[in-house]
Structures are given as structure tokens and as C-alpha cells.
Amino acid sequence: MIKKFGIIPALAGTLFASDSAWAAKYTAWWLPDNVSTFGTQVDKTFYIILAITTVIFFLVEATLLTFLIKYRNREGQKAKFIHGHHTLEIVWTIIPAAILVWLAFYQRGSWAEIKQNFPAEKDAFVVETSGQQFEWHFNYAGPDQQFGTADDIETINQLHVPVEKPVLLKISSKDVIHSFFLPEFRLKQDAVPGLVIPAWFKPLKTGVFDVACAELCGLGHYRMRGFLNVYTQSDLDTKLSELAQETEEEDIWE
């Protein structure tokens, strides 16, 4: 019996040991590499805004510095007596307004894709996700594909999903507000007690990724950390059947 269960920590051990290799992919002080389908759109919007704001920033600051140097107080210089300029006001109202309105419309599609247009349950891999101080609980339908039955599989802090298939999460919380955050998938959704809020993503590649909590949930907030394991469909099936077997074994009088 002991031998059999000994394999569990050993597995987790290899997971942790590969941590250093895993960490090696993070080097840049910048956005972590995106691995979700809609993430590219988020990143694109980010870079567009970055470009616009950078240009505006340098224009404004350069103008400011130029004026400060050019119009510094000097002997015999007299300041202009001007109260404003009507056309200028209109120009610098209309141009930023146009940019902002364009931005507002530009990113609507991406927002709708992420937060409004969910995949149908039959096409997706569905996981009930629940936060509690200070763990993420994941509930899978199990072999019978039905939630709320005896063969449901529960894992703590370990989320197992297939690659290249939409994953539909039904996010809730048992106690306080948490926020389910997958940095590399550009996905964040608060987990609110009393509500079941859907969220979805579609992984682009296999691997292990961080699951974080982004909303202050108490003293353990800083390490309410989970792991997202993305497998190929066949590896996932193996993993899930393993887990299902363990679930069956749990029916021991204790």
C-alpha cells in the first residue's frame, strides 16, 4: 500500500525539481510569453496603447523641456500677453478625442471574445473552479461526464487541462473574494462567493504554468498559488483516469 502511494510525492517531486528549468523561460522584465489564443489580441492592444502613449509622452515632455529652457527668465525678456487660442483648443481636443474613441471601439471585439462569447459546454473542457482561503479547488466531471456525481474528481492547486481545446471554467468562491489569474494566458476573473462566473481560455502549448490569486484574500494571499498543467489530450486522459482511480479509493472508512 505504502509503495503504491509513495509514487504521489515522487511525481510531485519531479514537478518541483523541474522548477529551475521552468523558471529559465522567464528572463525578460516584460510580459511573460503568451500561451492563449486571445492573449495575442490583448498584447496587441497593449503595444498599440504603449506606442501611442510613448509618442505623446515624449512630445509633451520634450515640449515642456524646450519651453522651460527657451523661456527661462532672462534680462530684458518680456512674457507674451496671450490668454489662449481658440483654434488650438479645438485641435487639441478633437485629436485626442478621436484617438480615444478609436481605441474604445478597437478593443471591444477582443473584450467580447474573452468575457462574453464563451465556448459551448459540449465543445469545451469544463472545470468547476473554487477559491478558498488559501487554496484553489478544481472539480472535474469524472468518467461519467456529469458534475455533482460520486465520481467527480477534485484536485487542489493542480489544474489539468488539454492543449488546443477551449477550457471553460466556472469560477466561484467558498469564503472571500479571490481573483483567478493566469498571467501567461492573459486571463483574470474574480471569484466571488455566491456567484458562478464563467471564464475560458484555449492553451496554445503544453507545459506547467502559474495560477495566481490577484485579489487580497487574507494573510495567505501572497502564496495562494496553483499550477496549470497543460497536456495533450491523450496525456490528459491518462492523468484523469489516474485521478479517478484515486477518487474511487477514497471511499475507505476513516
Binding site: 500500500m1 509513495g6 504521489i8 510525492p9 514537478l15 476513516e254
Partner: peptide
């Protein structure tokens, strides 16, 4: 009848799992 205690799954915190070469069992 003596009940069987289940092994504790520690994969939710890999640090914990690494501390044990063999599973710990519940102490109920």
C-alpha cells in the same frame, strides 16, 4: 474493523511533497 487511512496528497504544495520520500497517511 480497522479502517485504512488514506495517503495524504501533497501535490498542492510541491515543497511539502518534496519533504517526504514516502507518503504520510491521515491520522484520523
Amino acid at each position: 474493523t480497522v479502517p485504512t487511512m488514506k495517503a495524504i496528497k501533497m501535490d498542492s504544495d510541491p515543497y511539502c511533497a518534496l519533504q517526504h520520500t514516502q507518503s504520510l497517511f491521515k491520522e484520523t
